[in-house]
């Protein structure tokens, strides 16, 4: 984060005076494995969306749009729960730019 950090005297004791500040935290940086969805096989059953503990599955009108890598920690629960085995967990460092781009939330046909 390039944002300047507050000093002790600028901080409210024990409290963060803005709400929802956790949204700015890039918890996706903790990831070791990335989920890659085969959208040809995906049935939009929404099971991954239900199980994801970080709300990192992007959906719109009952369609899976992809994975939000700002928050996906790579836990792999979606891959385990997927009833049609359309999610593969791949070592983050081996994921190609094309694969990453394809997993990003976007309208699906």
């Amino acid at each position: 984060m390039s944002k300047k950090l507050m000093t002790k005297s600028e901080m409210m004791p024990g409290t963060v005076t803005e709400a929802g500040s956790a949204a700015a935290l890039n918890t996706g940086a903790w990831r070791t494995y990335a989920p890659l969805t085969d959208f040809e096989k995906c049935t939009d059953c929404m099971i991954c969306w239900v199980y994801c503990p970080d709300s990192a599955i992007a959906v719109k009108e009952r369609k899976k749009l992809g994975t939000d890598f700002q928050y996906c920690k790579g836990c792999g629960i979606c891959a385990v729960e997927c009833p049609v085995d359309c999610i593969e967990m791949k070592l983050d460092s081996d994921v190609t730019e094309a694969e990453m781009e394809s997993e990003k939330p976007q309208p699906r046909g």
Binding site: G14, V16, T17, A22, L25
Partner: peptide, 8 residues
Amino acid sequence: NPSTFGPL
């Protein structure tokens, strides 16, 4: 005036 308590 929402704030965050018990933050990370």
